[in-house]
Computed example of a mutant assay.
Amino acid sequence: MGFAKNQQISYGKNENVVLTNSNLGFQIKTLNYPPHGGLFASIGQNSTTNICPSNSEESNGFKVPYMDLYLKYVNSIVGGEEEEKSEAEANKKKKKGLKLKIKVGNPSLRRLISGAVAGAVSRTAVAPLETIRTHLMVGSSGHSASDVFHDIMKTDGWNGLFRGNFINVIRVAPSKAIELFIYDSVNKKLTPKAGEQPKIPISPSFIAGACAGVTSTILTYPLELVKTRLTIQRGVYNGIVDAFVKIIREEGPGELYRGLGPSVIGVIPYAASNYFAYDTLRKAYRKFFKQEKIGNIETLLIGSLAGAISSSATFPLEVARKHMQAGAVSNREVYKNVLHALASIVEKEGVQGLYRGLGPSCLKLVPAAGISFMCYEACKRVLVEDGDEA
């Protein structure tokens, strides 16, 4: 059977594919080919592809045998390449992982939320160590971490290790939010821009850390005192509100700020050294590894090391503060001021009394500092502005 000149070929019922024969040459015309992809769909709407030279004259149409198999073959080649590209892009996205982003327009609110989350997570993670440390400092349940642990387990069970944690979270969340917010704000304001002279002779992170620690301590100190009372005075109070009411009624409002002096004095060197060490270690890491971004694990380690440095240097003041907060519990001596507390502790227990509970304290403060910094930096990456991918 021969092909007549100027014969037009239609592929089956699909009127969108037309082959035209002219002098034994063919043209393939594609008109709005179905959107499943393939060679002819990629040619474009109302386009013409020459297989052989022709005069492009129209005539009557006829069907070409095996054309359906030919088109499936072409689609399998071109479509397969597109599927491979799509699969490669999907795998690339999976490797990057899911990135959670929550849009918060106000930068101050982002810092406050990040700080609150960081404080709550870090304190809950180390709540058992905080409980043991507090008992060791005031000597209410034993003279070693193991003695305190066994006494708490015998008396209250596992719940005893988390006694006072709820109020601790309520205290630490706003305290850490205020602290990190003040630190970021002051540090950013004092840090000179590229090419500018330093605004102050002291490291901006040192000043910012001191300001942050003092501000958060003053604003949240009553919660710290109530938390200490709930931890060491078992069965005396029926909760946070009951503790506040009984302390104010029986001991006066001023009792809520007992020990504030040593707390403020202690927090200045602690917070200043903590943030200064953290900032210095981050800069050293960037310089050594020559990369701007720092991962979560690296932030955890840097923050933990900074916490170890600062807590060891200021621990005696922390011991004096805990003794003053305990007040006259169990016929304890009521100290007049921080110097009186320090002198009395040295007189009764020696210099080692100023470092009682340092081991559990470091076990608690070191990871707490690392977790806090890690959560804070992670939350800042999650809470972004519109269009911000930080």
Rank of each mutant, 00 (worst) to 15 (best):
N16S: 15
N274V: 00
E292V: 09
G80V: 04
V78D: 05
D388F: 00
G259W: 01
C52V: 15
E389M: 08
T220M: 15
E130H: 07
E292Y: 11
G261A: 14
N168Q: 12
V64Q: 06
S56H: 11
P128R: 03
A320T: 03
A125Q: 03
S344F: 07
N23S: 15
T299N: 07
E81P: 00
N91F: 04
K13A: 15
P316I: 07
Y335A: 05
A194S: 14
I297V: 15
L358R: 01
N159Q: 10
E251W: 03
Q7W: 10
R234Q: 12
G327K: 01
S42D: 14
N16V: 08
M374F: 01
E251S: 14
F40R: 07
G37I: 01
K290R: 10
Y285V: 09
V366H: 02
F3W: 13
F40K: 09
A194P: 11
D242W: 00
H36N: 11
F244G: 08
Y66C: 04
R111Y: 01
S59A: 14
Y257D: 04
I178A: 07
G38T: 05
I371Q: 01
G239V: 06
N106V: 03
E255G: 07
S361L: 00
V226I: 15
A284S: 13
L219S: 08
D242H: 03
I302L: 11
L24M: 12
R282D: 04
G25D: 07
I240R: 12
E385Q: 12
P107W: 05
